[in-house]
Amino acid sequence: MQAFLKPHRIVLFLIALALVVWCATTMNWTWLANPKYQAMAVEGLWRTIWLTVVTMVIGFLLAIPIGFAQAAGPAWLAWPARAFCTVIRGTPLLLQIWLLYYGLGSLFPGNPWIRDSVLWPYLRESWPYALVALSLSVAGYEGEVMRGAFKGVAHGQLEAAKAMGMPRFTMFRRIWLPQAVQSVLPTLGGETVLQLKSTPLVSTITIMEIYDVAGRVRRDTFIIYEPLILLAVVYMILTALIVLMFRWFERRLPTRTA
């Protein structure tokens, strides 16, 4: 608190406050009172959070085998895994999303086997493509991180497990995986923020998340700046929440610091 109350900080804070008050009073915020937009905003916010959380979980689960294949797998598994990571990390996410949505989306209707399958009602919508594209993106980036984490587990630990006659899968489950996961946990917060910041890309394939809601409000009301400013504030709050959550989470983990 002491560090916060320096004279120049108070002045800067007052200037910032004046700016906020100026924005709140002189700009056009009447659209916020419209219940239609309120409902859309809540739904959009929920979709953004849902997409971030679900794709992070799926992506991370995919990243474990991808990282392990690169770190310890045979060449015929390591090479495809490495190629997958290179392609995902080397091309823009927007391009990947469009390839899946427009490319696969144009291929599926011509295939009677898919048209008759139970999945067809889902494949006609756009969210499965967004979910797959965002998950694969996490898998590619995290797969590379997990490769390093699996390689970073101390060799003595694995040798000790082998010497005790532990079966290979038990060794992976009890020794290798937990230590690798623990070593990447501090980076997960940053990755989640990056993932949150990639979600607006799926608005280009007609998914109504919070970025798309702001766009709709702008198109409907011809108000240019206000929805964008509020949108930026919403993302800042979401980012702050993610950072705080992971900080809290990290503090609960037992760590040994030298």
């Binding site: 910041k197 979600t199 607006p200 890309l201 700046y225 400013i229 949108l231 930026a232 800042m236 980012t239």
Partner: peptide
């Protein structure tokens, strides 16, 4: 802090118009 907390796409739109 602000720039790194907001998606690039939103920043591009804001800065593009601003």
């Amino acid at each position: 802090t602000l720039v790194r907390a907001v998606p690039e796409l939103v920043l591009i739109l804001i800065l593009f118009y601003a």
